[in-house]
């Protein structure tokens, strides 16, 4: 591109960079806050003004995973010395680890909620993207009577806010015994994401020239084989982008999870805020929970970033 730039252009460029930096900092501030708090000692978590320099600790994460109760009396020095490192961290915070009858430390509710989130988000994403891709292929390649109406109908399922359908869904789920089950939540999220996935994937598949498949058909392959050997690899970028979107939506979903789950299938989003309610909240533990919750989406998005860059432009940029 043009290598010659006028002085005013240089100045403008600097202003633009400064503006971008400021906006970035504003957007990153909450993430920094959560991350910093997750590693702070408890007494520094709520200081005014906020403490910026501190020695990071992992005690919030230890506490996050363990079931704890308030210490009534200080542990004896022998008890303290005999305790493993993680139990000492809990003692230091004025709490003790709750143990079951056999003396094994009990886990807090967090790990199972986190696992629930993973199971529900991954399975529903795979299902929504898989079914969405097949549906989109059908719409893209075959004449479907009333195609536009069908596509609109599919999208219309996304037009109602979850709160509107939550109560009837709850009653229906109770009838079917799906409340507080993984299957129930997976069905819900899959249905929720499917419309989105169909629309996105149709755009991507429309971009793939049908000549490729037709060549494969003529070369002696069935449509199924042509789909898997030719179309699917070409659609990889679109599938990646769609999967990220679906995963993020399923991972962050709050309203349905709050209403449809109690314990067994409860996901992290409704669980984390529920911890604030009782007594004096330990903000460092809540921050640690939130920090861990951020990670999967960040990692998933990072791994697929090359695909996303092209995918998010919805096929506008071709290689």
């Amino acid at each position: 591109m043009a290598a010659v730039r006028t002085r005013s252009e240089v100045a403008l460029n600097r202003v633009a960079i400064a503006a971008v930096l400021i906006v970035t900092i504003i957007f990153l501030a909450p993430i920094y806050w959560i991350t910093a708090t997750a590693f702070k000692p408890r007494h520094l978590a709520t200081t005014v003004p906020p403490t910026v320099m501190f020695e990071p600790e992992i005690s919030p994460f230890v506490k996050l995973f363990l079931r704890r109760s308030q210490l009534r009396e200080q542990p004896t020095p022998e008890e303290y010395a005999a305790a493993p490192w993680w139990e000492r961290l809990v003692f230091d915070g004025g709490e003790k680890v709750v143990r079951d009858g056999r003396g094994n430390a009990q886990l807090s509710g967090y790990p199972s909620r986190f696992a629930n989130s993973l199971i529900v988000a991954v399975v529903s994403t795979v299902m929504a993207v898989g079914m969405g891709t097949l549906t989109a292929y059908g719409f893209s390649r075959f004449k479907v009577a009333g195609e536009q109406d069908w596509l609109f109908f599919i999208l219309s399922t996304r037009m109602l806010p979850p709160v509107v359908v939550a109560i009837p869904m709850f009653l229906m789920y109770r009838w079917f015994g799906l409340n507080d089950t993984h299957v129930g939540l997976i069905i819900l999220y899959t249905a929720f994401n499917l419309s989105f996935s169909v629309w996105l994937m149709k755009g991507f598949i429309d971009e793939i020239p049908r000549e490729y498949e037709e060549a494969a058909l003529v070369d002696g392959y069935t449509r199924m084989e042509a789909f898997f050997k030719i179309v699917l690899p070409e659609a990889a970028t679109g599938i990646a982008a769609t999967a990220v979107f679906c995963f993020i939506i399923a991972w962050n979903e709050y309203a349905f999870a709050l209403i449809m789950t109690r314990r067994t299938a409860q996901t992290a989003p409704p669980f984390i805020p529920s911890q604030v309610g009782s007594g004096l909240p330990d903000w460092t533990v809540i921050a640690a929970g939130t920090f861990l919750f951020l990670l999967p989406v960040a990692i998933f998005t990072f791994l697929l970033r090359n695909h996303l860059l092209r995918g998010m432009s919805f096929g506008a940029i071709r290689k």
Partner: peptide, 20 residues
């Protein structure tokens, strides 16, 4: 008969090769 069964070969103007 389907395209596969007819045992014909097709050469097109473009998009004729399998990408990747």
């Amino acid at each position: 008969w389907g395209a596969a069964e007819r045992d014909v070969a097709l050469v097109l103007q473009q998009y004729s090769l399998y990408p990747r």
